[in-house]
Write a protein that binds this DNA or RNA. Structure first.
Lengths: 191, 191
DNA sequence: AGCGTAAGAGAACGATCGTTCTCCACAAAA
DNA sequence: TTTTGTGGAGAACGATCGTTCTCTTACGCT
């Protein structure tokens, strides 16, 4: 097993364990057992647990971004591409391992560590930028994109706590209303 | 110091420490030191740390509810009473100890404990009911109330992570748009 | 074959976790 | 004054934390 493969196994196991149980609740011994990577190797690949957490967040950011872009790319009409964000959320919320946004959870638990707080902030800023671009393609303002991002964030926490995927559809309908209010209804082409 | 006063000191210290540092990061020794209540007394007042966390959540629920109702009660016009929710958030977000919603944080960190998850769920359901009532007074639907609750939830996490109180005002403007879309603009009386 | 070295398993380290127990001081009752 | 008992301070408990170290095995090189 080379270093690349070992890192992959560690990050994958850590992501699953930290996300499902909380970060502090999972010790290095458990991570060793479930990743199959010895403690010595773990500490040669990562300098500390905090580095592993940062690696997990980076990995999660990639998965999120790729999944989101894949969902959006399946849709053509600019306004529907914006709404596809909430369809992506709806699919995620029905995953039975769903337990809210891993970044928000990490921030609440160990956001006092500056490097963790920074990683979470960057992820959320990246999502904001993504929404601004997507909304701009539909002719909408950055202000509108901010509203739609708030709805997406609210849907994530509400779905996690209520244990229901419904907030995704609810957020989608609210987004439709906000888009229509700024842009008018463009489901039929106007010239 | 009677039991009532001792409980008050424990809950107050625990709330401050857990909210500011995360729950698992604060041990019973620190809680003993900062509350001034001995470990023996602590365990005669509460059967376990989990009971203390539940007490903190209950206390936080009371503070939140009272503060919210106080803010809303200062306003007369039904639509403005709805918007006062976001003014309450704006005030909270500027508190320099603000670190997001304590319930969301607790859920992410130790939501695997059923009693904690239940307490968080009840708090959020209570807020949903509050919004439904408030929106109904303005002639709005439960569906609209759901949208406005999502905005409030999203504003809390976004403000915490971005470290800015601005999402409160952003959510307020989005809420205004959603209210106008369902009810029309009622800032001047229409007959 | 003999030697050097990297990596494995997991014991060990000091610290701290939640919880319990011991010991002592002081106040009320006899 | 002596006895009894309640509650405080904090030591102690076993477990587990993140991290390091030891010991052993096994493989590459000459």
């Amino acid at each position: 097993m080379d270093d690349v493969e070992a890192r992959r196994r560690v990050i994958e196991a850590a992501d699953r364990l930290y996300y499902g149980n909380g970060i502090q609740a999972v010790g290095m011994d458990r991570l060793r057992t479930e990743s199959g990577v010895s403690l010595k190797r773990l500490y040669s690949l990562f300098s500390s647990k905090e580095e592993i957490v940062l690696g997990v967040l980076s990995h999660r950011h990639q998965l999120w971004t790729q999944g989101l872009e894949a969902q959006v790319s399946q849709v053509g009409a600019p306004q529907d591409r914006v709404l596809a964000v909430y369809d992506y959320l709806a699919g995620w919320f029905t995953d039975d391992t769903f337990r809210g946004c891993g970044f928000i959870n990490a921030f609440g638990e160990i956001g006092t560590a500056p490097s963790i707080a920074a990683a979470v902030r960057e992820h959320k800023e990246s999502f904001q930028r993504f929404m601004v671009g997507l909304v701009a393609q539909a002719g909408g303002s950055a202000e509108l994109a901010g509203y739609l991002a708030l709805l997406a964030e609210g849907a994530q926490t509400t779905a996690a706590i209520a244990g229901s995927p419904d907030p995704a559809r609810q957020a989608r309908r609210a987004a439709q209303t906000l888009i229509s209010a700024e842009l008018g209804d463009r489901t039929t082409v106007t010239v």
